[in-house]
């Protein structure tokens, strides 16, 4: 347990610099975005005011300033996409970087007097924490950015929106910001399971190299099949036999089976098949 925590801490610190860069990039791009957009909006408003329009008229023609103007722009979603892409790549890199270079760190990691599965769990935990960290920082950023907007755009022209409304106004964000605990467990549970399956796939490749890629893809395919098998049953043979709650419980079970399978196989590969 102590070693698992140490390894997790170590993995986090290894990604920290890049992580800070990602956070900085997000904050800067989004802030620039909100300032630029608020100013553009106010520029139009002032132009219309000079032409002698009333505020009421302007609001009717131009619309109020909504935070969604930002969230639907590339300056807002761009950095989020970059963050997501980086983390997705890092899911692979978090393993492969240990094999890179002349100083292959994986020698050291595999010779630690601790269960090798701790490496697996530490890496998975790191990914998970980094996702959660970015997701929660984004919330903070939205709050900051909406305050900035309020500084530039007078309240008269502001469309009042709380955090919930901002998030709901933005499609793919809703996956990252579930509103109920169950939804949270489902979304992040599936994400976690996917990370486990990918990790196992990577370990297959690291164990058997070229042939391993095939095994990895096969494993991922089987995992997906097992996980969605209740749905497959529902829409084919059983034709809507399950209640939604039953389907949900079944998928929790198949999800757990996939996670257990992934852990078991990874443990086997790490102890019996992996090579430096």
């Amino acid at each position: 347990m102590k070693n698992y925590l140490k390894l997790t801490n170590f993995e986090l610190s290894r990604f920290f610099k890049l992580y800070v860069v990602l956070i900085g990039l997000t904050l800067v791009m989004q802030t620039v975005g909100i300032i630029w957009m608020s100013n553009t909006y106010m520029g139009s408003v002032e132009g219309l005011l000079l032409e002698g329009n009333t505020a009421e008229l302007i609001k009717m023609n131009l619309g109020t300033f909504s935070f969604s103007t930002l969230t639907t722009s590339l300056l807002f979603s761009g950095p989020i996409i970059i963050c997501i892409a980086s983390l997705l790549i890092y899911v692979f890199l978090i393993w492969y970087r240990d094999w890179f270079g002349k100083n292959t760190f994986v020698y050291r990691l595999f010779m630690l007097p601790t269960a090798r599965m701790n490496l697996f769990f530490a890496k998975a935990t790191s990914i998970f924490l980094m996702v959660l960290g970015l997701v929660s920082l984004q919330l903070v950023f939205i709050l900051i950015e909406s305050q900035i907007a309020k500084l530039i755009v007078p309240t008269t022209y502001m469309e009042s929106q709380n955090l919930n409304q901002i998030i709901n106004g933005f499609d793919y964000m809703r996956v990252l910001y579930p509103t109920t605990l169950i939804e949270f467990l489902i979304n992040y549970g599936i994400g976690f399971m996917a990370v486990f399956v990918i990790f196992t796939g990577i370990l297959f490749e690291r164990s058997f190299r070229l042939k391993g890629i095939l095994f990895g893809i096969l494993f991922a395919g089987i995992s997906l099949f097992v996980f969605i098998s209740p749905i497959l049953l529902q829409v084919t043979i059983l034709e809507g036999f399950f209640y939604p709650v039953e389907l949900f419980i079944l998928m929790v079970i198949t999800g757990l089976i996939v996670i257990a399978g992934s852990v078991w196989i990874s443990n086997y590969l790490l102890n019996k098949k992996i090579r430096v």
Binding site: R14, G101, K102, N103, T104, F105, V106, Y107, R108, M111, L112, P113, T114, A115, R116
Partner: peptide, 19 residues
């Protein structure tokens, strides 16, 4: 076993630490 790594160690031909 994992405990063995406290009793046996390996010094490869390059440092196995992060550069």
């Amino acid at each position: 076993r994992k405990e063995s790594y406290e009793r046996i160690t390996f010094i490869p031909d390059a440092i196995t630490m992060l550069p």
